[in-house]
Nucleic acid binder design. Structure first.
Lengths: 241, 241
DNA sequence: GAGTGGTCTAGACCACCCC
DNA sequence: GGGTGGTCTAGACCACTCC
């Protein structure tokens, strides 16, 4: 690299990795596009191919980028098969995995509640967009989901095309230019209330799995707070360690 | 490498990786010991240091081995700080993580139930060792846990030193020479029964988190089937994606 | 100072994809 | 056949640990 002659020691490949990441985040290489080849980039930055490979491999490990021998390196999208199940862990009892179909119940703009503001790093009272939906698996309601995002960062989401797409993260990426890269999920067991009774078709006090997720962008900033209540008679939450 | 002139194409570093893994599994390098240096191993196998590095890095990524600049490469143990929380995801509501203290209720040898036999790849009726214990966090019972392992693979476990160690996987490793490397967890929401009422101090029908885990060794063979019922008033299950 | 793993380089060849 | 990423090599130097 020509710039970055700073005395702070960080491995070259990490600096390269961050530069590449910033070019992705900036929108210079939108999701789905091919980035320049290893040799082109290594010349561009004046480093060896090996060093540049280490940077790209690191990005690939974090699912930021997908590499294919013979084809090239692509910025990851949320509709690729690999990404689809990164954030969806519900599995049918027989082990089959499929994506749910969504039905939106509520889409509104309102002030953030305290817990939402804290999760999103906002001030209480800042405006958010709230989406509530049912997600069905095998034509059976499986999830009651409340999604909350910043109204300033996602301006206009509450008026989006009437049928909201099934995978919100794909919409975030295409419409708002932000990619969900990581998430933190906290799981609780709760008792169904009247809302869950109505929408999930379970009796009041049925045990449900509650998943509170904070989804974060490529740099780790919180993007979305989502609470899902899930029926576990016909599905379970799968985690591989 | 001198052997392995087979025509089936697999990258050299993967073959090296498997050879190293087999030497670890065989007990030649027990957990906690340092394996030979990169240069020594590369000479031993007649490959370049870079290739050997790739093999070792892969093993490090899978937590089989831990590498430390200036010191060497050590076979991972289940008491290292890194490993301790790989399989323990319960977190206190304020975010603090600590390991639970266990109290054994049952330790017996009996025939496997159908679901246990299936999980462990055994025949129904084969003998298993069953351990039931309470695990306390902050002096409050948090988990009621049933652990089932093959009685032939873990011969003598039912008569182990009376205070069973807190971390069973450490015992498996030291006493039986097997390391738990991976696990698959299936999470359900269930209602507390009388047993949970008695041992966890919750009312009957309180929603609980049930975690069904199949723990596997370095080669992916099932080692242990464990069902934990967990109270989520004071803790939650944390999953980072 | 000696030994370890970590970084970086430069170059060769291979497997894969597409034209 | 030309381009891509994947493998393998050989060697230099650096950062860290321990004696």
């Amino acid at each position: 690299m020509n710039d970055q002659v700073t005395p702070n020691f960080r491995p070259l490949y990490q600096q390269i990795k961050e530069v590449l990441l910033s070019r992705i985040v900036s929108g210079e290489w939108p999701p789905g596009t091919f980035i320049p080849s290893e040799s082109a980039l290594s010349q561009q930055y004046g480093v060896s191919v090996g060093t540049l490979r280490k940077a790209l491999d690191a990005l690939a490990n974090e699912n930021v980028v997908i590499r294919r021998q013979g084809k090239g390196t692509v910025v990851a999208t949320h509709d690729s098969d690999r990404s689809l199940f990164q954030f969806f862990h519900l599995v049918r009892l027989d082990g089959e995995r499929s994506l749910p179909i969504s039905r939106v119940l509520v889409r509104e703009r309102r002030k953030a509640e305290a817990i939402e503001a804290e999760a999103l790093g906002m001030e209480p009272g800042d405006e958010v967009i709230h989406i509530r939906r049912i997600r069905e698996l095998d034509e059976r309601p499986a999830l009651l989901e409340d999604v909350v995002v910043s109204a300033t960062r996602f301006t206009g989401l509450e008026e989006e095309p009437q049928p909201l797409p099934n995978t919100l993260y794909h919409l975030y990426q295409q419409r708002f230019g932000v990619s969900v890269a990581h998430a933190e999920e906290r799981l609780f067991a709760i008792a169904a209330g009247s809302e869950e009774q109505e929408h999930l078709g379970v009796e009041v006090n049925t045990p449900l799995l509650e998943i509170r997720r904070i989804a974060k962008d490529l740099q780790g900033n919180p993007l979305e707070y989502r609470v899902s209540r899930c029926e576990t008679q016909h599905h379970y939450y799968l985690n591989e360690l």
